[in-house]
Amino acid sequence: MHVPDGFLDAPTSIATAVVAAGAVAAALRGARHDLDDRTAPMAGLVAVFVFAGQMINFPVGAGTSGHLLGGALAAVLVGPWLATLSITVVLLVQAFLFADGGVTALGTNVLLMAVVGVWVGYGVFRLFRRPFPQRLSSVGVAAAMGAFVSVPVAAAAFTGLFAVGGQAPIPVGSVLTAMVWVHLLIGIGEALITALVVGSVVAVRPDLVHGARPLLTTRELEIREDVRA
């Protein structure tokens, strides 16, 4: 999903950079309230883990591969503000150190993965968390739904940018179909990895999972009532 230099024209790249910068600035303010002794080490771990996870391309169909985007995973673990910052840091390191994703396309990549990927993933997670049984085991399932949806949505968002500023005259409809199809498949991988990682952390330390906190609060209240009785 890392957009290289040259795919999009300069005005589009500048526009996405401005939007991405605004989103990161908002995340810098929003994240300050989310940071405590539990979320601070988690934010570092999430960034490191998403970087590592993105090195693992898994095959999807013939001659194509995909890798974790990590937006929903990060958002469920540390909340959407810190997730936006974590994924942005990963993208910065990848662009400057590894030439993975263009430097002029950095704003585009932050917008697609750290903003669209994170917030769509988190939104769908919140949506699916409600109807499921209010148990800790539901957190991983809802996270997987968020992960699955976030990938083709990010792919569609890229196609939207390509329609505006693509550097080759190709019918947008055919690009959209191809992008969404292949990223639906990648989304399955994204969902599996996200369910595995979120499920593991929930099993070991549910209090470290941002998306599991509401469930823990009710549990803690029950315990206090028991003590009083």
Binding site: N57, F58, T64, S65, H67, H183
Partner: peptide, 10 residues
């Protein structure tokens, strides 16, 4: 890891 082009490259 797979060395095939990723979704966007493909």
């Amino acid at each position: 890891a797979s060395k095939s082009p990723d979704g966007l490259q493909h």
